[in-house]
């Protein structure tokens, strides 16, 4: 491979890397030598890096992450357990679809975060309130994506199974579930984003620990580098999880061209 070949093959990677390095370097240089930085409003990469190191070595960060993860995992898991079967039933039984569709669609389209204050007031500041919010936000992508997946099942394949004498259980296990899997995983990807909003808002609103709280607290005490650390960590987690889901989608369903509107 020639030098040119090496670069053009991974063009996107190189340009992206270059872009980020350039920005970070420019940011640091401008704020060190050209414009004096008011520590109450701005900060620079070197300070952020120092704060990063400090936090990683300390205990507080890990504790906050654990607390936030706990609430998120609880809420998300219940969303999976409730959402996927609901979507399956809606997809398979016409009457259920007719009854639930308008109601659930209206809820899906609404900013359910608006219920956050109510949930916190009712359930208090602990794990349960936050998990409830995460659940409310992340259940709908599962319901609707599973539903769409079931409805898109190739009728021909259903006939194939029937022609070999398969029963309802065979239909579910051998055709409907595998066919719906890519949709479910796409739903998981959407649900993660929405669930993260839930945990963040919940922790902004009323919490004494957790990564969202850490960010607001850093903001209140004008510790900008620590704030940025929190934002960057959360961003990395969000991107990591989302990319993981995308990879999973591709592995499970290589035969589907992915041109979905995000």
């Amino acid at each position: 491979m020639t030098a040119k070949g090496f670069f053009t093959e991974r063009r996107r990677l190189w340009l992206g890397l270059f872009s980020v390095c350039f920005l970070v370097a420019a940011w640091e240089l401008v704020l060190t030598y050209i414009v004096p930085v008011n520590p109450f409003f701005f900060t620079k990469p070197s300070l952020i890096a120092a704060a990063f190191k400090e936090q990683l070595q300390g205990a507080r960060l890990w504790h906050d992450l654990a607390v936030s993860s706990q609430a998120f995992i609880w809420g998300f898991s219940v969303a999976v357990i409730v959402g996927i079967p609901a979507g399956l039933v809606m997809g398979w039984r016409r009457r259920v679809e007719y009854s639930l569709d308008p109601f659930l669609t209206a809820l899906y389209a609404s900013p359910l975060v608006a219920l956050a204050p109510l949930l916190i007031i009712v359930f208090g500041v602990g794990v349960f309130g936050k998990a409830a919010l995460v659940f409310l936000l992340s259940v709908f992508p599962f319901v609707f994506n599973t539903f769409a997946g079931v409805k898109s099942t190739d009728l021909l394949l259903i006939n194939v199974i029937r022609s070999f004498g398969g029963n309802e259980k065979d239909l579910y296990l051998k055709v409907i579930l595998p066919s719906t899997m890519p949709y479910i995983i796409a739903g998981a990807r959407l649900a993660i984003g929405r669930g993260l909003v839930g945990i963040i808002v919940g922790e902004f609103y009323a919490a004494s620990e957790g990564i969202g709280f850490a960010i607001t607290q850093a903001g209140d005490t004008y510790r900008l580098p620590d704030m940025f650390v929190g934002i960057i960590i959360l961003s990395l987690i969000a991107v990591g999880l989302t990319e993981l889901m995308r990879k999973l989608e591709l592995t499970v369903a290589p035969w589907r061209a992915n041109d979905e509107v995000r």
Binding site: G193, L196, I200, G219, M227, I231, L234, S235, A238
Partner: peptide, 10 residues
């Protein structure tokens, strides 16, 4: 991928 809400305190 990041919930933009995270930027609110900033």
């Amino acid at each position: 991928a990041t919930p933009r809400i995270i930027f609110l305190p900033l």
